[in-house]
């Protein structure tokens, strides 16, 4: 273990010297299972990767797409392109509103995308659809909404647990030297450096495998 290059392609270890039977040698060797490319669904799913990025994957059923294209034709419109439309959601429940943020033109083969939504702490939804030459949008599938996390300290304070700003930042500034009026920035910067130092997850799989040993 650890010097993984030497062993990475050798899962199976046929020990030439071993002659005794394994206690459960009657279990069949691992069989190869096929997993499908798609499941015949019609859906798009959003997943949050980080405050700035949302991952989407989708599968559009031929029936649904055929139906929509038929509708477009019946309406006398002409298909321009397939798109992934990303909207920001504000408000909750019946009062929620969606505002188109940006659109990505899709190639036929695309079935997933990393959406660089930019602003942390926002709620997003995406649709795969068809845009006509005259601008009309026909939705093929609409995603679940997702909320990206914030990436900074909250300005909301709990009235029962208030301390002065000075005390607060002094407490956070341990190890950063003398506190100053710029300490919030120092704390933020220190935290970011920590998060980007990498390799925090390791277990038995290599301490520096994600950052090449750099910190």
């Amino acid at each position: 273990m650890g010097n993984s290059d030497a062993v990475k392609d050798t899962n199976r270890n046929e020990d030439a010297e071993a002659t005794s039977q394994s206690p459960e040698a009657n279990v069949c060797p691992a069989r190869v299972f096929d997993i499908p490319q798609s499941y015949g669904d019609n859906r798009i799913t959003l997943m949050v990767r980080d405050p700035w990025t949302v991952y989407s994957y989708w599968e559009i059923s031929k029936d649904v797409e055929g139906g929509v294209r038929g509708q477009i034709e019946r309406d006398g419109l002409t298909v321009s392109k397939s798109v992934l439309r990303v909207s920001e959601v504000s408000g909750e429940g019946d009062d929620s509103e969606e505002k188109k943020a940006f659109e990505i033109t899709l190639k036929d083969w695309a079935d997933s995308w990393y959406l660089h939504v930019g602003d942390p702490g926002k709620k997003w939804v995406a649709e795969v659809g068809i845009v006509c030459e005259t601008g009309e949008f026909f939705c093929l599938a609409k995603s679940n909404p997702v909320s990206t996390p914030t990436n900074s300290m909250s300005d909301v304070c709990d009235g029962d647990w208030m301390g002065s700003d000075l005390l607060y930042y002094k407490m956070l500034s341990y190890g950063l030297g003398e506190s100053s009026f710029e300490v919030r920035e120092q704390v933020d910067s220190h935290l970011r450096k920590w998060l980007f130092s990498g390799g925090m997850t390791s277990g038995m799989f290599g301490r520096e495998s994600l950052d090449g040993g750099k910190e």
């Binding site: 980080d50 996390p149 998060l195 390799g199």
Partner: peptide, 23 residues
């Protein structure tokens, strides 16, 4: 939302090389 992975969120487990597993 947070993790102790590189960059502090889900990038390690949701990346171009392993995202195919989630569908």
């Amino acid at each position: 939302m947070s993790s102790w992975g590189y960059k502090g969120y889900s990038e390690v487990w949701l990346d171009g090389c392993n995202d195919w597993i989630y569908r």
